[in-house]
């Protein structure tokens, strides 16, 4: 009798213990689910917030923010020379890129003569990706300053001055905007209070970013990228290595039978002298 009773008590106690254990297991499962839910929520929220933050940080750009006289889709191109010239050189250059400095050193006299003769017009894309590679802000500052110069019709002369005075790639000298303003004094009529404010306030920053993004999407991935009438021309055009001499020959061949371009007074005065900064 007493045996049976104690059996019943024990089993009741066991049942209670089992229930408590089951309760605890359930609570632990819930807690684990809660943690997992919280973790997944943190990850999802982070990604959504991230996309929103980055979107708000990426500068919006409209063609009306471009320097005066720019052309092309969204005004990302700086045109130099006669608009009706029979051949077009498209040049993607980064102000800090040493290979661009080498190209300019070898070619600028020839290129400027071709421009002056109305044989070619140039479409400049002022890109600024070196800042990403080597850290810094010199490319963007210089690209903005070139935009400021373009705004008053001094792009080409200032462009030649900058390349003639290019700092070493790894020295981010143009992170100091005052150096860009000092160099502007070499271009008659460029250095005005308006120009200095434009350089210091990064006025054409959104345009510079838009030009770079356009280059990012172009599939070209190094500078200088030079196209002659849409065909890659540097370091060689088809199988012809590009030299100042072969460039003239190639342009003349492409222009055969076509009238030369005529420079308007404005586009003529915007040309840099072929022999300035010859080194």
């Amino acid at each position: 009798m007493s045996q049976k009773n104690s059996d019943g008590k024990r089993s009741a106690r066991e049942r209670m213990q089992e229930e408590r254990a089951a309760d605890e297991a359930r609570a632990r499962r819930l807690r684990k689910l809660g943690i997992a839910g919280a973790v997944v929520a943190v990850l999802v929220v982070a990604v959504v917030v991230g996309i929103l933050v980055m979107n708000s940080k990426s500068t919006s750009y409209s063609a009306s923010q471009a320097p005066a006289g720019t052309t092309g889709s969204n005004n990302l191109v700086v045109p130099v020379g006669a608009v009706n010239a029979p051949s077009t050189l498209t040049i993607y250059e980064d102000p800090r890129c040493p290979a661009c400095g080498d190209f300019e050193k070898s070619f600028h006299t020839t290129v400027n003569q071709l421009l002056g003769a109305g044989k070619v017009q140039i479409h400049y894309h002022v890109v600024s990706f070196i800042d990403r590679h080597d850290q810094g802000s010199g490319s963007k500052n210089a690209a903005n300053a070139l935009g400021c110069a373009q705004n008053t019709g001094h792009f080409h002369a200032y462009h030649d001055v900058l390349y003639a005075n290019q700092p070493d790639e790894t020295v981010d000298a143009w992170s100091d905007k005052s150096k860009l303003i000092t160099l502007a004094k070499q271009v008659p009529g460029l250095d005005t209070p308006t120009f200095e404010a434009c350089v210091n306030n990064n006025t054409f920053g959104p345009w510079v970013t838009a030009v770079e993004t356009d280059f990012d999407k172009s599939g070209y991935n190094s500078t200088p990228t030079i196209l002659l009438n849409g065909t890659a021309a540097y370091p060689s055009y088809k199988n012809t290595p590009l030299t100042p001499q072969s460039l003239v020959t190639l342009v003349d061949a492409a222009n055969k039978g076509k009238p030369l371009g005529t420079l308007t007074p404005a586009s003529a005065s915007a040309l840099a002298s072929p022999n300035a900064h010859a080194s």
Partner: peptide, 9 residues
């Protein structure tokens, strides 16, 4: 845009 924030999370 999303990956850096996923990494931070």
């Amino acid at each position: 845009y999303g990956l850096p924030f996923l990494e931070l999370a």
